[in-house]
Computed example of a mutant assay.
Amino acid sequence: MSDNVFQLNCWFEGRVQGVGFRYQTTGVAKGFEVTGWVKNLADGRVQLYAEGEESEVLDFQKEVASELECYIRDAEVKTGTGPRACRGFSIAH
């Protein structure tokens, strides 16, 4: 059995810092079987990292994008597989 999980990195651009974006993302994560983190980047973007079952991770990312769409101008998504790196979901610094 493989220890690898589906992994997603998403970089959100727009008015995504200083609006509760990370806090709301953490709230959305509670409704999904995902682990990972969300953090502000120095360039003004927010990075979301999530891992777990592929369908669960993709649904989670879509829900974040849907709930916070008024703040998002653009999003870049990269996916892959690898060893689980997180326990739980949190705001990273």
Rank of each mutant, 00 (worst) to 15 (best):
G36L: 09
G31A: 04
D59C: 05
F32L: 02
L41F: 01
F60C: 02
D43M: 03
Y71E: 10
W11V: 15
F6D: 07
C86Q: 13
V77S: 03
F6W: 10
G88R: 05
A75Q: 13
T35A: 13
F12V: 02
E33Q: 14
E53V: 06
H93S: 12
R84G: 03
Y71N: 15
T81P: 01
R73Y: 03
T35G: 04
D43G: 03
S55D: 07
P83Y: 11
F21K: 02
Y49N: 11
N9P: 00
E63H: 10
A75N: 06
D43Y: 07
N9Q: 11
R84E: 07
N9C: 09
F32I: 01
S55R: 11
R45M: 01
F12T: 08
I91W: 04
L8S: 03
C86W: 06
R22M: 14
D59A: 14
Q24Y: 00
F21M: 05
N40H: 09
G20N: 07
A75W: 01
C70H: 12
E33F: 08
R84K: 07
E13G: 11
S55F: 01
G14R: 08
C86L: 09
R73H: 10
F89N: 01
E51A: 04
N4K: 14
V46Y: 05
K78R: 14
K62L: 09
Q24H: 08
G44H: 07
V38N: 06
T81S: 11
R22C: 14
A65E: 06
R15F: 07
R22K: 12
E67R: 15
A65G: 04
D3S: 13
D59G: 04
G18F: 09
E69W: 08
E53D: 14
I72L: 08
G80C: 12
N40P: 06
T35P: 05
A29Q: 13
Q17W: 09
G80A: 12
P83L: 15
V46C: 04
C10E: 09
V46Q: 01
A42N: 04
V5L: 13
E51N: 05
E51F: 01
A50R: 02
A65L: 11
R87T: 15
D43K: 05
E33R: 12
S2Y: 00
E53H: 08
E56R: 15
F89Y: 08
W11D: 13
V34R: 09
L48V: 12
V57Y: 02
F60S: 06
G27P: 00
K62G: 02
E76K: 07
K62N: 09
T25I: 03
P83T: 11
E69R: 13
V46T: 02
E69N: 15
P83C: 00
A50M: 07
V77T: 15
N9F: 14
A29S: 15
A85L: 15
M1Q: 03
S90F: 11
E13H: 13
D3G: 15
Q7F: 01
E54C: 04
A75M: 10
R87A: 15
E13L: 08
S90L: 05
H93R: 14
G82T: 04
G80E: 13
E69T: 11
S55M: 06
R22I: 14
V38I: 12
W11F: 10
